[in-house]
């Protein structure tokens, strides 16, 4: 449905992405200007990516590959220099997003923060209270619901971050490094949440450096390098060409264009 235009804000156009497609990124380019002399740096060099409805897709790549920028442009948080983004959901209000290393309002409690996010979607009264209570239960933060966020651990913040991304009951969820910095218990909890979302038919796209998690959760992966998607396909197809996802990833990002691996 939605279309991101080069140099302009993302607007929406229902049905734009085509049947069965939750997110379609075409020829996405992004150049930023840095330093005193405004030197141009090309972050995205023509990203093509398709995410089908109901899939859990891992977006992989080394640091600086353009994963976060791709997600931000897809959401309209950044303007593309060229290219388009089409979303296959009813409106951008049906998309949920967790930024990387989220930091929230430290003097609000978890319940207040989620209620605030719900208000931004126009939810009010009893519906808001019920939604917030259910989300707190879903992410296992019922007992910490009335504790201020500055007292939350990193894992708790990550979970409240996921909860805020789900406050609008999205059809498409974009999670930027949801497992980074979490201890094993925190990772397991976040993985369970993603599995539950998948079970409900929600489309999930997440960036990660933790390949074992991607292997465990995803049906598809897309691997980025230097501002392009250099390989995308099913996890099974990747594993048919290498013993582990890690080995496959190293071959793709380490060598030339897709390092001779088959799509």
């Amino acid at each position: 449905m939605s279309v991101a235009q080069s140099g302009e804000r993302v607007e929406t156009s229902p049905g734009g992405a085509g049947d069965g497609v939750a997110l379609a990124v075409r020829g996405l380019r992004k150049t930023v200007h840095v330093g005193f002399w405004r030197r141009p740096v090309e972050i995205l060099r023509g990203v093509d990516l398709t995410v089908r409805r109901g899939e859990v897709v891992g977006l992989l790549g080394p640091n600086g590959a353009g994963k976060t920028t791709t997600v931000k442009v897809a959401l309209g948080l950044m303007r593309p220099t060229a290219g388009s983004v089409e979303l296959g959901v009813a409106s951008l209000s049906r998309v949920g997003y967790l930024p990387e290393n989220p930091y929230f309002y430290e003097y609000l409690t978890g319940r207040e923060f989620l209620a605030f996010c719900a208000r931004l979607f126009g939810l009010g009264g009893r519906e808001r209270e019920e939604r917030v209570a259910r989300l707190l239960a879903d992410v296992g933060l019922e007992r910490a619901a009335d504790v201020q966020l500055r007292k939350y651990s990193k894992g708790m913040l990550q979970r409240i971050g996921i909860a805020q991304a789900l406050v609008n009951e999205p059809e498409l969820v974009l999670l930027d490094e949801p497992m980074t910095g979490l201890d094993p218990v925190g990772r397991v909890e976040v993985k369970r949440i993603i599995q539950r979302l998948h079970g409900r038919g929600t489309t999930v796209l997440f960036n990660s450096h933790i390949l074992s998690d991607v292997h465990e959760l995803c049906s598809h992966v897309a691997i980025m390098r230097e501002g392009r998607v250099v390989w995308d396909g099913e996890v099974a197809a990747a594993l048919a060409q290498a013993a582990t996802l890690e080995e496959f990833f190293m071959r793709v990002v380490g060598g030339g264009e897709a390092a001779g691996v088959a799509p």
Partner: peptide, 25 residues
Amino acid sequence: MSPVVCCAPPGDPARRRDGAGLSQV
């Protein structure tokens, strides 16, 4: 590439993203 002109009519739920509504404020 030329910008894609978008076409959700005013009031369409698709435009809610621009939410300049009083409830958000």
